[in-house]
């Protein structure tokens, strides 16, 4: 699975603007909900856990 750059830019902007629209203290909660909702769509725990590990990297 992949995503076209143009589509990715749409997601990029929407996520940034959504984060900007909610208080800082609520952002983690929103992202956690997002992760759970996306987990339901993906449905493959090993893929999701690998992505969580990847997202946890800072380099």
């Amino acid at each position: 699975m992949s995503i076209e750059t143009q589509a990715l830019e749409t997601v990029y902007d929407h996520l940034a603007e959504t984060l900007d629209s909610i208080p800082l203290a609520q952002q983690s909660l929103m992202l956690t909900r997002l992760a759970l909702l996306m987990s339901e769509q993906i449905g493959q725990p090993e893929v999701i856990c690998r992505l969580i590990d990847e997202a946890a990297r800072n380099s």
Partner: peptide
């Protein structure tokens, strides 16, 4: 706590 709270709010509609 974050996961529990996220689950609580999602549970209202999901």
């Amino acid at each position: 706590r974050l996961l529990r709270d996220a689950t609580l709010t999602l549970s209202l509609r999901h």
